[in-house]
Amino acid sequence: MIKITECPRDAMQGIKEFIPTSCKVTYLDLLLKAGFDRLDFGSFVSAKAIPQLKDTATVLSQLNLSNTSTQLLAIIANIRGAQEASAYAEITFLGFPFSISETFQQRNTNAGIQQSIVNIDHILTICSESGKEPLIYLSMAFGNPYGDPWSPEIVSSYANLLVKKGVKHLMLADTTGVSTPATIKMLYQNLTKDFPYIDLGVHLHSTPESMLEKIQAAYESGCRRFDTALGGYGGCPMASDKLTGNIATEALLSFLQTKNIDSKIDQEALQQAQYYSNQIFNRN
Rank of each mutant, 00 (worst) to 15 (best):
L253R: 09
N119H: 11
M12F: 00
F93Q: 00
G95E: 07
Y146C: 10
N260F: 04
I75L: 15
N78P: 06
A89R: 15
Q274M: 08
S130M: 05
L256D: 06
K214N: 05
S46T: 10
Q279F: 00
I113F: 08
L256G: 07
G235H: 08
V25T: 15
E220G: 07
D55A: 11
M238W: 04
S130C: 03
F281P: 00
I50L: 01
C236F: 07
Q271F: 10
R80N: 14
T192I: 13
P145N: 11
L124K: 12
L39M: 15
I215N: 13
I280F: 00
A173N: 02
Q52K: 08
P8Q: 15
L39I: 14
F142E: 08
G42A: 10
D266Q: 05
Q62A: 12
S254H: 12
T103E: 01
A218Q: 03
S240N: 11
F255M: 12
F36M: 00
Q114N: 11
T70M: 09
A87R: 11
C223V: 05
K132F: 06
P181N: 15
L172I: 00
T21K: 14
N160Q: 07
K168E: 09
F226T: 04
E268N: 13
L73K: 02
L270R: 01
I4E: 00
D10S: 04
S210R: 15
L162I: 02
K185Q: 14
Y146V: 05
K214E: 04
Q62H: 13
T183R: 07
S66E: 15
F93D: 09
M186N: 13
E102Q: 15
D121I: 15
P181V: 13
L204H: 10
D148H: 03
L230D: 05
E153F: 06
S46F: 02
K16N: 07
K242S: 10
Q257C: 08
L138M: 15
S101W: 01
T207D: 13
